[in-house]
Design a protein around this nucleic acid. Sequence first.
DNA 1: GGACGCCCATGACATTTGTCTTCCCCCGCC
DNA 2: GGCGGGGGAAGACAAATGTCATGGGCGTCC
Lengths: 205, 205
Amino acid sequence: MSSELTRILLAEDQGMMRGALALLLGLEEDMEIVAQVGSGDDILPQALRTRPDIALLDIELPGRSGLDAAADLRVRLPECRVLILTTFGRPGYLRRAMEAGASGFLVKDGPVEDLAAAIRRVLAGERVIDPALAAAALSAGPNPLTQRERDVLSAAVDGATVVDIAAKVHLSPATVRNYLSAAIGKTGTRNRMEAVRAARQNGWL
Amino acid sequence: MSSELTRILLAEDQGMMRGALALLLGLEEDMEIVAQVGSGDDILPQALRTRPDIALLDIELPGRSGLDAAADLRVRLPECRVLILTTFGRPGYLRRAMEAGASGFLVKDGPVEDLAAAIRRVLAGERVIDPALAAAALSAGPNPLTQRERDVLSAAVDGATVVDIAAKVHLSPATVRNYLSAAIGKTGTRNRMEAVRAARQNGWL
DNA sequence: GGACGCCCATGACATTTGTCTTCCCCCGCC
DNA sequence: GGCGGGGGAAGACAAATGTCATGGGCGTCC
């Protein structure tokens, strides 16, 4: 009877990965994929429609990010557990995931068997987090960048010049340079490219 | 009897993806995974040991790239077909894959069903290439960057300064700036960050 | 042999970037 | 009212970056 199957929502942008995971989990006796989405914007609507027990969310999605969607679910569908499934084990991601109320955080590097196991553990009320990653997240400390610094740094990816950034963020070029300088200082780097890289690495963007 | 099963080598660095695809293909009646590797350096040795009919290769792998490995296989195991399976449908990648003797080029965006279908078509002697991608590769033209320009640009990723690059490539700082300038000119961009991005985008690195 | 293209290197120059100091305005707080 | 603090802006300055012209060496192709 269907009430015994755990209902799963799967959000993942890469079609092949999504399909493969869906097929895989479909093979498990006690699981059922009730929704597959490839965009972050579809997560909440589909979740509200299909009422899954657990949502498997990638972080980097077109549209709304998986972390934002996790926060949405926390509010609008609190009985639905969230398991973040991501390529990048970035400390800041893990931190934000926990703050958004996720019950687990899994990187795609591990073996597939981990996935079903993690789902079962989350359903049982456990929190699933890679210990090494948790340590890294704690030792890295919280995000040192202010909102504006993040804005400016985000706008600085892929080579925008100071005036470009200024236009994008509606600030004076002089101010932009000040924020960039601050971000460079806080990340302990030597220029904006390194700063962007460091911030990305830590999941601070 | 085992001689009727197509023998497959699977090279993919992301553990979960690799495992999922392996399980999936294992479900097909006529296919058999004879080797799974997560590093580009393992491809050739494993292929020589297990003699697959077809190798499924990701491009961006630790160690030797999938494209390099494809070239290796062409020489050392010519009866083994190569199907490139990649996240990024970059024109330059496709071009290089064809030059390396690949029989097919598949992006991971599509549905999983495409994979088994592509394998069968390749085995049947067809070439499998996404038509839109082929058009893009042709319209983009060949890689305009010289070897040195590529070297310098590659060394310039993630914010290395001119002296850093010079040290890495064993060139004079002044020369490095010349090459960077040339690369910026050829890519039609305004600075090295944009040049790196553009070159990456096109698969010219 | 000459033309061409790539490689490597310099020097000069204009522009952009990164740093620091100072200033104004607004808000919250004692 | 006085006092700080943060956001935004500006100016001045040094350092890094991007451009250009020039020159030499080397290999290939006509």
